[in-house]
């Protein structure tokens, strides 16, 4: 085999491998399994377990590293008014989701349980209203807010108002600018 051919073959293999990686990241599942298969049996909220120690169950997270699933979750976060309480992660009527604190646990199945079952201090139960697939997409997006999903799967930029402009607590000497709306 000529050396040039080998180079070409190597390059092709590399491209294939990269392509395959990309496929996984972008994998799209449309028709879900019948309900029940993907639902966690139970989500433990307390870290304390009476009796001898046991390993924490590894919860499922169908869209954990899936950019498309996280993107869908981002859209649903607005569609179902999650952003009304949790803003774009910083919170408001509801607790912030982008910080390190979790009231009812931050593992995927715990977040799933929080969304599906609700929580007594004001989190509504969405379980009967939203299909399991979409709750899992929301779980993935919520975890992405606190950087708990692989970086390559995270949304590149928020859908919300761009936050790059510095908060304008103005220099008093700077006059208030009169500007029209920015489309």
């Amino acid at each position: 085999m000529c050396s040039r051919c080998r180079d070409v073959a190597r390059a092709a293999l590399l491209a294939l491998a990269l392509g395959a990686l990309g496929c996984e990241r972008e994998e799209r599942r449309f028709q879900p399994e019948p309900r029940g298969a993907a639902e966690p049996v139970f989500a433990r909220v307390s870290p304390l377990v009476p009796g001898p120690p046991e390993p924490a169950p590894a919860g499922p997270n169908p869209y954990g590293g899936n950019a498309w699933g996280i993107g869908e979750g981002q859209r649903l976060f607005t569609w179902f008014n999650c952003n009304g309480c949790h803003a774009n992660g910083g919170g408001g009527m509801g607790p912030p989701l982008m910080d390190a604190g979790w009231i009812y646990g931050g593992r995927p199945e715990q977040i799933y349980a929080s969304i599906a079952q609700g929580r007594p201090n004001g989190m509504p139960a969405f379980g009967t209203r939203v299909p399991a697939e979409q709750i899992w997409q929301l779980v993935a997006y919520v975890r992405s807010l606190s950087a708990n999903v692989p970086k390559d799967a995270r949304p590149g930029r928020p859908d919300a108002m761009q936050t790059d402009a510095p908060p304008t607590i103005r220099d008093p000497r700077e006059p208030l600018r009169e500007r029209g709306p920015t489309p």
């Binding site: 799209r28 449309f30 028709q31 879900p32 399994e33 019948p34 309900r35 299909p131 399991a132 697939e133 979409q134």
Partner: peptide, 17 residues
């Protein structure tokens, strides 16, 4: 029941439940 089968990738999930 199978919105994603009929029209893949549309915004309506399949309500299999």
């Amino acid at each position: 029941a199978s919105a994603q089968h009929v029209k893949p990738q549309n915004r309506m999930p399949s309500f299999t439940q």
